[in-house]
Design a protein around this nucleic acid. Structure first.
Lengths: 160, 160
DNA sequence: GGAGTGAGTTGGATTTTCCAACTGACTTGT
DNA sequence: ACAAGTCAGTTGGAAAATCCAACTCACTCC
C-alpha cells in the first residue's frame, strides 16, 4: 500500500557480519580468544597477556561462554577455580584471527616489532582464502550478498 | 608452560592481531568497510546501513583514512562532497569479513533471518583457509607464534 | 520560494571502560 | 605457625566513548 517514499526508514543491514561482531566484536573478546588458541587458559594470564582490565575481562568471558564460544572448566575444587577453553565454535574463530594477523602484518605501517604468526608447517603466515565449492580464491569484491537465512546454529548441548 | 617468545612477564602481548584490532576493531569500523565492499560509498547511506551514529561514523572514517584503509574521493565541487572508497589495504580486509560471515552463519544460534553472503560463483559462503606455502588447510591450532618482526608496511606516500 | 539532499557538527545524556585496591580461599616457604 | 604468595574474581569512582536528536551549510530540484 505504501511505496518508495512512505515509511520504512531503511533499517541497518541485518547480516551475518554484523551478528558475528555482536559476539566477537566487543573490546578484548578476540584477544581473549587468541590467548586460548595459544594455549593460555587461566584468568590471570589472559588478563596479563591481553592487557584487559580484570572486571571487563570477566564480563567478556561470561558473554563468550553464554554464546557457546568458550566454556569454563573446573580445575580445582577447593578453592573452586576454573579455566577457559574454546568450544568447537571458539576453535573456528581461528580463520578470523589468521586473516586479521595476515592483514595486519601486510598493512601496518609503523616500525614497531610485534609477534608474528606462522602456519604450523613453519612458513610465514600467508593464508589463501578460497571457495569450498568452486575452488577459486576469494578476491576483493567476490563476496556478494545472498538471501535472508537463519544461521545453522550449532546446538547448545554439543560441547566437546 | 607457555613462553613461545621471550617477553616481559607482565606486558600485554604485542602481536599483529592486537595491532590489527587497533585499526579495525573499533566499533563500526568493520561494518563501514563492509558497506564499501558492497559498493556503498556515501556517508548517509553508510550511516543508515550500519546503524552507526553520524558523529561516531565521522570519527571512524577519519581514522580509517589516516591509516590508509580508505580514501575520500571528491565527487562534487560545489558543495564539496566526498565519497569513501577502499584502498588496496581496505580491499584486503575482505578475508576478515568473509571469515566473520562464515563463522557467524555457522555458529549463531538464534533463528533471526539475516542477509547471508556468497562467493561470486553463486555458492554459499564456505571459505577454506590454506597456507600459501604448504597448501595445507589451516586447522584450529595450526596458527603458531613466530618471531618479533616489523610489518611489511605499505609505504605511507602511496595512499591515493 | 519551499522542499529535499548530503555531509557533516553540536550538546547533553547514557553506557562502557579503566584503574587500583580489595576479597576470600586456599598453598607454599621458613 | 605464621607470613607471603597465588588465583579468580569484586568493588567504587573517574575517565572515555557512544548515542541521539536536532541543527547547520551549501547547494539542487520543483
Amino acid at each position: 500500500m505504501n511505496r518508495p517514499t512512505d515509511m520504512a526508514v531503511d533499517a541497518p543491514r541485518a547480516c551475518f557480519i554484523a551478528a558475528g561482531l555482536d559476539v566477537l566484536g566487543e573490546r578484548w573478546a578476540l584477544l581473549a580468544l587468541r590467548e586460548m588458541s595459544l594455549g593460555v587458559h587461566r584468568f590471570d594470564q589472559i588478563a596479563r597477556n591481553t592487557g584487559a582490565s580484570r572486571d571487563i575481562l570477566v564480563g567478556r568471558l561470561r558473554t563468550l561462554e553464554s554464546q557457546g564460544v568458550i566454556e569454563r572448566v573446573q580445575y580445582s575444587e577447593r578453592p573452586p577455580r576454573y579455566e577457559y577453553h574454546l568450544t568447537a565454535s571458539g576453535a573456528e574463530v581461528a580463520p578470523i584471527l589468521i586473516s586479521l594477523a595476515a592483514w595486519s602484518s601486510t598493512w601496518m605501517r609503523d616500525e614497531t616489532p610485534r609477534a608474528s604468526y606462522r602456519h604450523s608447517c613453519g612458513a610465514d603466515l600467508k593464508p589463501v582464502v578460497s571457495c569450498a565449492d568452486c575452488g577459486e580464491e576469494f578476491t576483493p569484491g567476490s563476496l556478494v550478498l545472498g538471501p535472508l537465512v537463519s544461521a545453522a546454529g550449532a546446538d547448545p548441548a554439543s560441547d566437546q
